[in-house]
Design a protein around this nucleic acid. Sequence first.
DNA 1: CTTGGAATGTCAACAAGGCTGACGTATCTT
DNA 2: AAGATACGTCAGCCTTGTTGACATTCCAAG
Lengths: 168, 168
Amino acid sequence: MAETSVPQGGQALLFLTDEQLRKGIEAMFFAYRGFTADPDRILADKAYGRAHHRAIHFIHRSPGTTVNNLLAILGVTKQSLNRVLRTLVEDGLVESRVGRNDKRERHLFLTPEGAALERELSDAQRERMRMAYRAAGPVAVAGFRQVLEAMMDEEIRRQYEALRDKSA
Amino acid sequence: MAETSVPQGGQALLFLTDEQLRKGIEAMFFAYRGFTADPDRILADKAYGRAHHRAIHFIHRSPGTTVNNLLAILGVTKQSLNRVLRTLVEDGLVESRVGRNDKRERHLFLTPEGAALERELSDAQRERMRMAYRAAGPVAVAGFRQVLEAMMDEEIRRQYEALRDKSA
DNA sequence: CTTGGAATGTCAACAAGGCTGACGTATCTT
DNA sequence: AAGATACGTCAGCCTTGTTGACATTCCAAG
């Protein structure tokens, strides 16, 4: 694209230069490594992976969610999700209940054991997030959230916003 | 950890509640999907994946970098990287030159074809970043960067900072 | 000059976690 | 009664990560 992003209005939009954008891209890449590092370490021992973490997280967030809901949020195929879900159910971390109204649906819940793992994982992840937030301060955090939301795909953003203000 | 983050100083640090942290975590998760979506789409056609993108990106960033450097930055094993690198060299996107001083080392460069693919990928990724930055504004962008840097692992942050201010 | 260690490459085997395609079953909707 | 929907499952494939073992090449220290 443009070598440097020359603005329309004559004002130098320095934060939109390719150079600045590259720094943002690399920051995103490296930060995501940190973001997943702690849960990954915990899961490594337990024969689970990131996929299990994601499933557990969103089941915790929305107890009773259906498989289809989860598919949409995670953005994977049902075969992929099913593999993960099956082991979680077998291991007694997730319970799958047949729907009341619509018996085709399965509603997913964490068992006490599942909830315990969820807490362990999210404690670790939250702790890093807390440190980062504390170091950066509230204004930075607001900006952080703004940029992230603007980076999402349209459809994903809708899902995010639907979740955003629901309490766990 | 704490149900809600009760501050030490008596001041309500609202942005550090578990609830706020959870939103940040989910924002990070969904945003990263958007972050990689465009390059992934481009690469899907070409029988390459994210791993190739990362290698190409950092070779472009630091032409002549050694395999060991790249390993440290990417955080994968040499076997993993080697597989990716081999296909890129075979396909004529990357050139691997034996080191002048230390002939054990291989210095990596993009060929014109490699540079072309790099440009295609980073144009797409930068474009999304540009849109997000533009939508959020310069103050938000500064905050975004601050939080991301605070989220990195110590060792990674050092590498990031070393790269950060080098021009491509 | 020899030798230890570093940097690199390569082979083999394996696992996680994506994907597609096909099929089956139960259930709901029309 | 027929079609659509929700879910599960089997089979097979790919990418990308891992470990372990081993060969080569070369630098540098003794």
